[in-house]
Deep mutational scan, measured.
Amino acid sequence: TEVDLHLGDITIKLKDVSEEIVKRAKELFKNGWSAEFVKKWIEEAVK
């Protein structure tokens, strides 16, 4: 499945990412993480 994760003005296309990771990524962004950091976190999380 593909998900578009909207973080501010940046959209990250996610492939084969669990709902849990998407939820967590949104929380991290809301908590002040930059979109770049969230993207890196996701990449690490799906390895």
Rank of each mutant, 00 (worst) to 15 (best):
T1Q: 13
T1G: 13
T1P: 10
T1K: 13
T1I: 12
T1L: 14
T1V: 13
T1E: 13
E2D: 12
E2R: 08
E2F: 14
E2T: 14
E2N: 11
E2H: 10
E2I: 14
V3W: 08
V3R: 07
V3K: 07
V3P: 05
V3M: 13
V3C: 09
D4A: 13
D4K: 07
D4V: 15
D4Q: 14
D4W: 10
D4P: 04
D4N: 12
D4F: 11
L5W: 04
L5D: 02
L5I: 09
L5A: 02
L5Y: 02
L5S: 02
H6C: 07
H6F: 07
H6Y: 06
H6W: 08
H6G: 04
H6P: 06
H6Q: 13
L7I: 07
L7P: 01
L7S: 02
G8Q: 04
G8K: 04
G8A: 04
G8E: 04
G8Y: 03
D9F: 08
D9C: 09
I10R: 04
I10H: 07
I10C: 08
I10S: 05
I10N: 04
I10W: 06
I10M: 13
I10A: 06
I10Q: 07
I10L: 11
T11D: 04
T11G: 05
T11E: 05
T11M: 06
T11P: 03
T11F: 07
I12M: 08
I12L: 14
I12Q: 03
I12W: 02
I12P: 01
I12C: 05
I12H: 03
I12T: 02
K13L: 13
K13A: 10
K13P: 09
K13W: 08
K13F: 10
K13Y: 10
L14E: 01
L14F: 06
L14D: 02
L14N: 02
L14R: 01
K15D: 06
K15F: 15
K15N: 10
K15I: 13
K15E: 07
D16S: 06
D16Q: 07
D16T: 04
D16F: 09
D16H: 10
D16C: 11
D16G: 15
V17I: 08
V17Y: 05
V17W: 05
V17Q: 02
V17N: 01
V17A: 05
S18Q: 06
E19A: 11
E19V: 10
E19K: 06
E19M: 11
E19G: 08
E19W: 13
E20G: 08
E20M: 11
E20F: 13
I21F: 06
I21A: 02
I21R: 01
I21T: 04
V22H: 04
V22P: 01
V22S: 03
V22Q: 06
V22I: 14
V22M: 10
V22E: 03
K23F: 15
K23N: 12
K23I: 10
K23Q: 13
K23A: 15
K23H: 10
K23L: 15
K23P: 00
R24T: 09
R24L: 10
R24H: 12
R24K: 14
R24V: 08
R24Q: 13
R24M: 13
A25G: 03
A25T: 01
A25L: 04
A25M: 03
A25Y: 01
K26C: 10
K26F: 14
K26T: 11
K26M: 15
E27R: 07
E27Y: 13
E27Q: 14
E27H: 08
E27P: 00
E27L: 14
E27V: 09
E27S: 07
E27N: 06
L28A: 02
L28I: 03
L28V: 01
L28N: 01
F29W: 12
F29D: 00
F29V: 04
F29H: 04
F29R: 02
F29Q: 01
K30I: 11
K30S: 11
K30G: 09
K30M: 14
K30F: 10
K30H: 11
K30P: 01
K30D: 13
N31W: 14
N31V: 06
N31M: 15
N31D: 09
N31F: 13
N31C: 15
N31T: 07
N31I: 09
G32L: 02
G32D: 01
G32C: 05
G32T: 01
G32H: 03
W33T: 04
W33V: 06
W33N: 08
W33K: 14
W33G: 04
W33C: 08
W33M: 12
W33Y: 14
S34P: 09
S34V: 04
S34T: 11
S34C: 05
S34K: 05
S34H: 05
S34M: 05
A35C: 06
A35H: 05
A35R: 04
A35M: 05
A35F: 10
A35L: 09
E36F: 06
E36P: 05
E36D: 09
E36A: 13
E36C: 15
E36S: 10
E36K: 05
E36Q: 11
E36G: 07
F37R: 15
F37M: 14
F37G: 09
F37K: 14
F37L: 12
F37I: 09
F37A: 14
F37T: 10
F37S: 12
V38K: 00
V38H: 00
V38M: 02
V38C: 05
V38S: 00
V38R: 00
V38P: 00
V38I: 13
K39G: 06
K39N: 04
K39W: 15
K39P: 00
K39Y: 12
K39D: 03
K39S: 10
K40V: 08
K40H: 10
K40G: 08
K40C: 09
K40S: 08
K40A: 14
K40W: 15
K40Q: 13
W41V: 01
W41K: 00
W41Q: 00
W41C: 01
W41E: 00
W41G: 00
W41P: 00
W41M: 03
W41R: 00
W41F: 08
W41I: 01
W41H: 00
I42C: 03
I42F: 03
I42H: 00
I42S: 00
E43D: 09
E43G: 06
E43F: 14
E43R: 05
E43P: 01
E44D: 13
E44W: 15
E44S: 07
E44M: 11
E44P: 00
E44G: 06
E44Q: 10
A45G: 03
A45H: 10
A45Q: 14
A45V: 11
A45M: 15
A45E: 12
A45R: 09
V46H: 06
V46P: 02
V46N: 05
K47D: 07
K47I: 11
K47G: 11
K47Q: 12
